[in-house]
């Protein structure tokens, strides 16, 4: 049994998965499909990067899927209603920050465990989004789709945004006081307070960042889809958590990172999805396979934390 998860064991897993799919189908291993995978993964990777910060503080943010949905619906409705297109992004981001702020305040001020807080905002966000959209899909104008296909110096915009967000958050985690203190908080909150770390302030920021990333990630995904279905973002929180944990971030806090960590985790999940589509696997199998993967990685994470006898 694998004793510890490291980004490198995930890289090996990724290579194995790619070998498997390319042996099963000729359509898998080529530059175009690989570019496709990168575009498809951009949304998930951005959401998972924000999630990584939360997980490092030993928290969890279950509301990201609903934030993706709500942010999309609110900005989509406004654009459909006649507002200029450029307004869509700032509004989406605002929604993300607002929900993140609610999460942060509830965790810090009201001392509610993150799991419960974000479970509540998960349902509230989804409910509110469904109310606004009257549970119908929001069809976006053509111009919206153009964002998804726009290329900057030949690189599709979603990839550019993903790289930008991931690089910034990676630098924040590894090179700034804020980032290093998050690892301390994840290890022991009480000790962190004693060490003079402004724990509450940082935790609020972390949930804000996660909300913001969820909104950006959602926006990037929507720009590729052209419409927001009522189920958009459903269970994205699990994908994001899985991507982070697959990349070596611990659910118990204090450990993990974005490069190669979360990025490779997200890439692995997306590659499996993409491969299953290409080999024409039964779509009902997708959740089964990703769920089994999540189960196994969480199991390894727990064993690492508590030892094998538990």
């Amino acid at each position: 049994m694998i004793k510890r998860l490291s980004p490198y064991s995930t890289v090996i897993l990724l290579v194995l998965v790619m070998l498997l799919f390319s042996s099963l189908s000729d359509g898998f291993l080529n530059g175009r499909n690989f570019m496709n995978i990168l575009i498809q993964v951009s949304g998930l990777a951005i959401v998972a990067a924000g999630m990584t910060l939360v997980l490092i503080t030993a928290g969890i943010d279950l509301s990201v899927g609903s934030i993706m949905f709500l942010a999309g619906v609110v900005s989509g409705k406004i654009v459909v209603g006649g507002a200029p297109l450029w307004l869509a992004l700032p509004i989406a981001l605002l929604v993300g920050v607002a929900v993140g702020w609610v999460n942060g305040i509830a965790v810090v001020r009201f001392k509610i465990v993150p799991f419960i807080v974000t479970l509540a905002t998960l349902y509230m966000g989804r409910g509110f989004g469904l109310y606004i959209s009257e549970t119908r899909a929001v069809n976006l104008p053509e111009s919206f789709l153009a964002i998804g296909t726009f290329k900057l110096l030949g690189i599709p915009l979603p990839i550019v945004i993903m790289v930008l967000v991931l690089v910034v958050l990676h630098l924040v985690l590894t090179k700034t006081t804020f980032g290093r203190q998050l690892y301390a908080i994840g290890n022991d909150k009480r000790k962190s307070v004693k060490a003079g770390i402004p724990v509450n302030k940082l935790l609020i920021k972390v949930y804000l960042i996660s909300g913001l990333c969820a909104a950006i990630g959602g926006f990037v995904a929507i720009a590729q889809l052209g419409a927001i279905s009522p189920s958009f973002g459903n269970q994205s929180e699990f994908m994001a958590i899985a991507a982070a944990v697959l990349g070596g971030t611990s659910l118990f806090g204090g450990k993990g990172g974005i490069f190669p960590g979360t990025f490779i985790g997200a890439l692995l999940i997306q590659t499996i999805q993409n491969g299953l589509v290409i080999i024409n696997a039964d779509p009902y199998l997708y959740p089964l396979i990703t769920a089994s993967l999540i189960f196994v990685i969480v199991l390894i994470d727990s064993r690492e934390k508590f030892g094998s006898h538990v």
Partner: peptide, 18 residues
């Protein structure tokens, strides 16, 4: 001890003011 085992010595020394 008020130390964080998941961080390095130097990070622990300066955790509140890098």
């Amino acid at each position: 001890l008020n130390l964080f085992p998941n961080l390095s010595i130097k990070e622990n020394l300066f955790i509140s003011a890098f």
